[in-house]
Design a protein around this nucleic acid. Sequence first.
DNA 1: TATGAATGAGGGTTCATTCAT
DNA 2: CATGAATGAACCCTCATTCAT
Lengths: 188, 188, 188, 188
Amino acid sequence: MGRKQSYTESELLDITKRLVLEHGYDGFHLKLLSQHLPGARSTIYQYYANKEEIVAACMKRVITSVIEKASAIDETSPMQALQELLTVYVEESELHQLLGDAHKINVKNSAAASRDLDFVKQAHTTLKVQLTRLFQKAQQEKNIREDIPLPVLVGGFSNLINTPNMINVPTPQWSKLLFQMWMGGAQR
Amino acid sequence: MGRKQSYTESELLDITKRLVLEHGYDGFHLKLLSQHLPGARSTIYQYYANKEEIVAACMKRVITSVIEKASAIDETSPMQALQELLTVYVEESELHQLLGDAHKINVKNSAAASRDLDFVKQAHTTLKVQLTRLFQKAQQEKNIREDIPLPVLVGGFSNLINTPNMINVPTPQWSKLLFQMWMGGAQR
Amino acid sequence: MGRKQSYTESELLDITKRLVLEHGYDGFHLKLLSQHLPGARSTIYQYYANKEEIVAACMKRVITSVIEKASAIDETSPMQALQELLTVYVEESELHQLLGDAHKINVKNSAAASRDLDFVKQAHTTLKVQLTRLFQKAQQEKNIREDIPLPVLVGGFSNLINTPNMINVPTPQWSKLLFQMWMGGAQR
Amino acid sequence: MGRKQSYTESELLDITKRLVLEHGYDGFHLKLLSQHLPGARSTIYQYYANKEEIVAACMKRVITSVIEKASAIDETSPMQALQELLTVYVEESELHQLLGDAHKINVKNSAAASRDLDFVKQAHTTLKVQLTRLFQKAQQEKNIREDIPLPVLVGGFSNLINTPNMINVPTPQWSKLLFQMWMGGAQR
DNA sequence: TATGAATGAGGGTTCATTCAT
DNA sequence: CATGAATGAACCCTCATTCAT
């Protein structure tokens, strides 16, 4: 009946996420991964067929969690929703960075990786659609200035999550600060 | 005497910059570099002693150019200066991304790389000092709101350069749009 | 668990010894080594981390064996002991040549190589101390002429091992012949 | 009428000799050589067609000089002649070490190197013949003990030159000391 | 002739992946 | 299943030698 697995798939992906963020896709080695897990390097192949699949699965898992949180948001009030959405994004701010390496994954080697990356792309689109929807609603409700093109405002909003939290405020307050700044501007 | 070089050091660094941005430090190989230059891989060693030195020299050159442009700015009016500085940063928006990999360069192999990276660090500090100076002046002149901590505003400003220019506006106008958004906020 | 190694560490070091003696340190390549072992070049890295470590380990092993044999000698009668010591040296006459390349090993790359070479140096000293001890005792017992400086006699003794055995006498007899010649001189 | 040569062939061979002794044949690079000569590395090819020829020419020159000195010795008294011969050998004691690497020279690349090495081999034989002749004469004159096989005595004599001169005596006296030790033996 | 640039072969090392136990 | 050994492809880098100026 076989030996007990010494770690779960989920643990494997957790470590993968951390290491890919730390070292980038090309700096992420299976040797490195195995050093952060019990057991031998080759054991990893019991879980995934190759490096590509590991990272793809990791990306899929991360974006799935974001999608779940984002789709749970009540969109009745668009501005309120945007604030909540920003909090979700800030909480998972690595998402952006992580997915930035998606294009490096060589998909020819593995159907599974290919499928996972397709899912990621799909999910990405879903998020963009939600964002656009919220912005359009906000605009209809006259909450948003019109002298700046909408895509610029959307881009600015999305880009907020990359702002480094230099003052180490807890995430929810950090998200509020960012939203406040984005909304009201820097000028007195 | 001797043969004519088949490409200049500057060309080499141009390509290096592009490739490091495209592939990251770990994805940047001398093989890749040589594929984008005429001649054999080993010819590269006529210019630099190793991979580390190439990338370090590249980073140095890029930040040097930014420093030059930034220090030419007239700081009399801080808000005006910030707008101009943003333009410089947007023009060289890869700087940030490029330098992000600086810590990956193994400096033990090469004194030259070490020197160049020290220079880069120094220059980085110089830029931060300029930015802080401008913000303080702006604050003194009551141009900047005070209910948001200054570091957040600074962070938000710096982070503007990462906003993707989705609408493909020419750089100067893009910079103006960003500045306008950052100053006035998104709210109507 | 895992596969069976296709050769032992000891076999690897045996071949290394032979090849370093044959080709010198600079002429000793891992490709050469792998050609004298089953399997691929990269397999060697299962045993040692780099070329330096291989040769250092080899030297350590050889001198360890000499130290063991030399320290087992009964030193009651110094002349008898010297004869036995010579036999040990002649048996391991490659030692000298092998260690001659020790200074070429770049120790910066590898702590293990550094440690092994320190051990070798230490052992070398131990051997010299023993030799000096025996000569002093022999001198006290008036077995050694005094019109020639002791270091010259010691040097001459040590150098005996390099005498090529042209007549292909078995080692113990060869050692006896050399000792006899060194003691009695060539003159009738 | 061309440019003035910046160094002579003889200087080139002098440096070569020193460097080959210092680094061994495989540790001897043309880059190293050119660093010890004025001018560019490629200039060396104005003197010799390749690395092999350089080293072969160097060996030839060294052994030629030994042959000259050795053949000038008056062989009337064999013991006297042996003492003088030893002095010559000690003076040129690097000869042995230098020629030890002769077999490493790949002769296929160069007819000139091949010719020079043949000459070296020939000269080597000439020296051995002289040595044998002197020993035979010494034996006939009853100067040499007969209980030890002649080749052993010859080998011992030849090997004297490798004795390290630890006490830093000037060469002629060193030679005398060695001869004395070899003749009379170590025993009181 | 002297030079510095260009080159390709070859050696060191790492790493994803496969294989035998 | 889990493991550790084996492998080959891919990189970095050096060096003898050739080539164009």
